[in-house]
Design a binder for these strands. Structure first.
Lengths: 228, 228
DNA sequence: GATTAATTGTGTCCGCTGGACACAGTAAAG
DNA sequence: CTTTACTGTGTCCAGCGGACACAATTAATC
C-alpha cells in the first residue's frame, strides 16, 4: 500500500505492456468524483472511460479502497509555497489554502477520514503546517496537535458550506433553516437559549471559518507567549 | 422526514396492527452498528432480527438514509444534565460528554456529517452547548460558531482515537507510525520539520483532546474578556 | 530460433445491496 | 356485510466489489 501511494512500484520486465497506468486510473476517478461525487466512482465507471475492462483495473490496484487512497493523495496536491512570515500569518494562510483544496475536491472530506496511511502530498501538507511552528518553542507533540485542531476546524467548515453532488442529502441551507424554524415554532420552550441565539444571527460568507480560526490562533498565541 | 425524527406520526385507525415500531427498528440498527459498524447495517440484516421481512421495513421508513438519521438521533441521546458553572468549565464538560458519546457509538461520526435535518436530541445538545455561553456577551452567531469549533475538534479527535469495526481501514496506530517511520528513513530530507517534531513526541492518552480544547477555550476567553 | 516463464487483459460468476411493485391478508368504519 | 385503509410478503431489477480461470503477449533463457 505504501508503495502504491508513493509510486514505488517495481516495473516488470516480461509480459505485455500495460495498457494504462495507475496515475491515469486515479485521474479518471478524480474527474468522476469531482463531477458527480465519490459515490459515483465505481470500478465499472472508471473502466468505461479507459481502454480496459473493469477487472483489468485490479492488476494495478488491489481494491477500491486503495484506489480511493491514491486518488485522494493525488487530488490533494502539494501545498502552495508561501514566503516565510510570522507563525500566525503563516498558519492562517495555510488554513485558507487547505480550505480552498477542500472546496476544489469536496469528496476529499469523505475519503480522508479516520486512520490511514499517508501519501507524499498529505505528508507535504503536514510538513508545511508544522514548519510554521518550528521556531515557536512548542514541543513536537504540541505542534502536531496544533495543526490537527486547525485541520479539524477547516474540514468541518468546508463540510458544512459545500454542497457537493451525491454525497449530501440534497438539502439546501434554506431547507435546514426552514425545518428548524418550523420546529422552534412549536418547541421553542424546550430550547430557549438556542431560540434566543437565533435572533441575533447574521450569517455572512466564511464567517464561521475565520471566527474559529482566530479563536484557535488566539489560544495558540497565548500558549506561545507563556512559553517565551 | 421531520415527522420521522420527531416522532410525530399520525397513528392510523383502520388496518392491521403494525408488527413492529420505528423505534424498535432503529434500536436493532443501533445494536448492529455498535457491534459491527455502520456498514454492517442493511435492511436485510435488520429485518432478520425482527419478525418481519425486509420490505416490511419500508412501511415505517422511506429509505435507508432516513432510517440512519433516526438511528443517529436516537443513539445520540439527550445531553447529561450538569449543574450551572462558569462558562468555561461548562463548555469543557460539555465537550467531554460529547466525546464520550462518540466513543460509545463511533458510527455517529459517519452518520452525522454534512448538512442534515436536526432531531430532538441533536437539538438538545446544541441547546446545552449554547446555554453555557448565554450570558457571555457573545452574539448569537458567535455562540453558534463557538460550539461548532468545539464540536469539530471533539469529532476529529474521536475519529482518530477510536478504532471501530468495519469503518476504518483496519490499521492500528502502530501500523501508521511504522509506515511513517519507514518513509522518513528514506525521505527525511523532504520533511525536515516533521522529522524534528516527531523526535519530541510524547503521546499520552487524550492529550490531543485536552490540548486543543484548552487552546480553543483560551481563544474564547480572550474574546469574551475583550467584550466585557 | 525455439522454449519457458512472467505478466496483462477478458469473460463469467457470485453474493450482497437498496428499492419498485403487485398482491394477499387484516381490521375497523360504514 | 361491504367497503376502505393499512400491513406484510414474494418477486424482480440494476448495480456494486471482487474471485477465478483462461487466452494473449512479451522478455529472458537455453
Amino acid at each position: 500500500m505504501t508503495e502504491l501511494l508513493w509510486g514505488k512500484q517495481p516495473l516488470p520486465s516480461r509480459g505485455p505492456k500495460p495498457a494504462v497506468t495507475l496515475a491515469a486510473i486515479a485521474e479518471v476517478g478524480i474527474r468522476i468524483a469531482d463531477a458527480e461525487g465519490l459515490d459515483a466512482v465505481s470500478m465499472q465507471r472508471i473502466a468505461a472511460e479507459l481502454p480496459v475492462t473493469k477487472m483489468a483495473l485490479y492488476r494495478y490496484v488491489p481494491g477500491k479502497a486503495e484506489l480511493v487512497a491514491v486518488m485522494s493523495d493525488l487530488a490533494m496536491g502539494a501545498p502552495p509555497q508561501r514566503p516565510a512570515v510570522p507563525w500566525r500569518t503563516s498558519l492562517y494562510t495555510w488554513a485558507m489554502d487547505l480550505y480552498d483544496g477542500f472546496l476544489l475536491h469536496p469528496w476529499l472530506l469523505q475519503s480522508t477520514i479516520g486512520r490511514r496511511l499517508l501519501g507524499p502530498n498529505e505528508l507535504a501538507w503536514m510538513e508545511s503546517g508544522i514548519s510554521a511552528l518550528a521556531g515557536s518553542g512548542l514541543t513536537g507533540g504540541e505542534q502536531f496537535d496544533s495543526i490537527l485542531v486547525i485541520t479539524s476546524h477547516v474540514r468541518n467548515i468546508a463540510q458544512q458550506s459545500t454542497t457537493f453532488p451525491g454525497a449530501t442529502t440534497g438539502l439546501t441551507e434554506d431547507d435546514v433553516n426552514q425545518s428548524l424554524a418550523e420546529i422552534l415554532r412549536t418547541e421553542a420552550a424546550r430550547f430557549p437559549h438556542l431560540t434566543a441565539a437565533l435572533q441575533t444571527l447574521a450569517g455572512s460568507e466564511n464567517q464561521g471559518l475565520v471566527f474559529g480560526l482566530h479563536r484557535i490562533l488566539d489560544g495558540l498565541e497565548r500558549l506561545i507567549q507563556d512559553r517565551g
